[in-house]
Amino acid sequence: MPIDVVIRGILSPLFIASILRISTPIILPALGGLISDLAGVINIALEGIMLVSAFAGVIVSAYTHNVWLGVLAGMVVGILYALLLALFHLYLDTDIILAGIALNIMAAGGTIFLLFILTGDKGNSSTLASGAVPTVTIPFIDSIPWLGTIFSGHNIFTYLAFIFTGLVYVFLYKTPMGVHLRAVGENPVAAESVGINVKRTQAIAIALSGFFASLGGLSLSMAYLTLFQNNMTAGRGFIALAAVFLGGRTPLGTTIASIIFGFADALANQFGSLDIPPQWVQMIPYAATVIALVIYSLRRQAKQRERLRRFQEGEIDDTKTAEAGSD
């Protein structure tokens, strides 16, 4: 396909809409990763949780013929799977990274194993008639050209991703639970000394991250596609973690970073029709992740130096006022 067709594709509102759609399964687990990371328990098992939830949603909806039961099952399975991480790390003293890796491996193998048992197929669940969550048409906006194409007609997970971005912000900064969660992540001893139950708070944070990762997984298998595929998360759980750091560990930043990754992904889709080796195109989202993280890390170092400098100068100023005060 000639390049000008691709460029026209990129400039169309459909492309922007596709960015939002593609970003959804990154934003949701990233919000979960953000919560657990702020609580001081980095959840590296997002990938695995997404996978088991995506699987459970497809299977349950296929066998019950009820989409919502499938969604519910996916959420429950995701939270339970996350609580396994809490159990291993918080109560059995396993290293959280190792436990997370184990859960990811178990999810990748386990879902295929169960898929094979249930369908006889190791690749995907196309033989099962699983459900899809409905799309939402926003009344007034839908009829506006461009804006309607971009913002209306997405599946509910996409809208949830943005709604939750705001809710997570309110939770983390305005509610006692969220504030305690951040306190625990920053200085657990201090949090404990004022009566905050550190382990329980961290367990809740991990459960919440499981909830958000499960939504991410479900958005893949019950909205973006309507079947389960071997390793269908394709590293999105890890990209989500990258988005947490790139977003400066804030809800809005995390979502914006996720959209940047979604953009790279959408771009790769467009370039797929060009006459270049597909391997190069498929590298785009991952290369974007690496480049973004390097830029972020350089910026952070510069910021840290700046802050250190301000702090040192501020302290000298403060001593001066203290001296003046005691004179």
Partner: peptide, 18 residues
């Protein structure tokens, strides 16, 4: 000190008893 470095003075003082 048992303080949360990124929180404000007031947030630290009421922490746990907000």
């Amino acid at each position: 000190f048992m303080l949360i470095p990124s929180f404000t003075v007031a947030e630290n003082i009421v922490l746990g008893e907000e």
